[in-house]
Design a protein around this nucleic acid. Sequence first.
DNA 1: GGTTAATAACTGACCAGTCAGTAATTTAGG
DNA 2: CCTAAATTACTGACTGGTCAGTTATTAACC
Lengths: 223, 223
Amino acid sequence: MAEKSPVAAQRSAPRRRRKEARPQELTAAALSLFVEKGFAATRLDEVAARAGVSKGTLYLYFDSKEALFKAVIAEGVVPAIEAGEAMLERHADDPVTLLRGFLYEWWALIGSTELGGIPKLMMSEARNFPEVAAYYHETVIRRGLRLIRTAVQRGVDMGVFRRVNTELIGNVFMAPLLHLALWRHSFGACCGGDLDAQRFLDTWFDLLMHGLGAAPAPREEAR
Amino acid sequence: MAEKSPVAAQRSAPRRRRKEARPQELTAAALSLFVEKGFAATRLDEVAARAGVSKGTLYLYFDSKEALFKAVIAEGVVPAIEAGEAMLERHADDPVTLLRGFLYEWWALIGSTELGGIPKLMMSEARNFPEVAAYYHETVIRRGLRLIRTAVQRGVDMGVFRRVNTELIGNVFMAPLLHLALWRHSFGACCGGDLDAQRFLDTWFDLLMHGLGAAPAPREEAR
DNA sequence: GGTTAATAACTGACCAGTCAGTAATTTAGG
DNA sequence: CCTAAATTACTGACTGGTCAGTTATTAACC
């Protein structure tokens, strides 16, 4: 009755106007699809469909596929960096707690969530989208590395850690975490051999603390 | 003189027939392009052109783009694993030398060469090509991890290393190496901040040896 | 009923894969 | 040897499908 269309079949939702909510919904849909299939292999029709709109609507909010990509990155990851910087202030006097916090919190808030797909996405696409890569590098990587370097430097200055090359320690610190996230979103999702995240993190933190020459005692003696 | 063709203009090389050499040339061209632009973004016309043949010829030797992908992986990486297994035999009694060898040799023979792009390629494409991923996982990853685990286990048994979780140590060991290679082929190729490979490896080996509780003395006291 | 969010049909470029034809090489016949 | 027939590596124009981006139209909300 209400619907005169006799074809029915097409289950078209009743076309709402929600200018405010759209960009969020679209970037959220794009994030999960980009992470799942990669940037190139994701069709904009699909992104739009998952957000419950048509492709034309997507183009009301984003100029191009690449612009959508940038928005996904900007929105997903910048808040996380800010959380890290807050933590650096909060535990200014305890480098071990700080590193443990970065490690386990990073995993809890980023690595293990959908955001954990972003490193893979950026690694995969960096060369094809140098502008986005530069933005990410400046906004996320540089700032993140500085965070870690600062924490380790404090530990060295306080005599808690051995003298190590603080220049590159941020990269070394992050490598296993990123590896874990990349694994989850590549081989972990298709071949067996899934890594046990908790044990992996414990193994790494244990090795790292011994490597830095700090008293072990991580959680309660990590198994 | 030799070339009678008066048309000239078209700089077509004189069409050689070299059935034996083609597959090699094609996989080599494909490897560098896949690494540079990713699998999806690489056009087969381009692969063929770089190998000095036409696209039609490519299809005489490979059934599909995916078949070419598999060939690239199989040819590029399996020999390297075999070299590692040989090394495990050669230095059976010295775990520290073994790990140092894996680390620096891996970088010299794989990470720093064009083959170093393969981990990035596989990470990026694993989900879209589960069959190739499964092959790589079985043929390369499993075997490689076993190599490292064996070396560390020996060190623990001999009392040279602390008791650590040998189950996951292979992944932890490889993570920074892979990170370095991935970096080279993503951000390193487009944004500044290039990692100094030698220093990075030294930093990692130093941290690792201390973490495993082995006597330091890596090269001559890595700076 | 006027404004504009939203749609869906459309366009044009692009590219994996095909195939009818071309040219290099080998073989057979003289 | 020389030449012509047979073979086969190789080519490049073509096809069918896909998809980013556009536009003419529709309908929701004030």
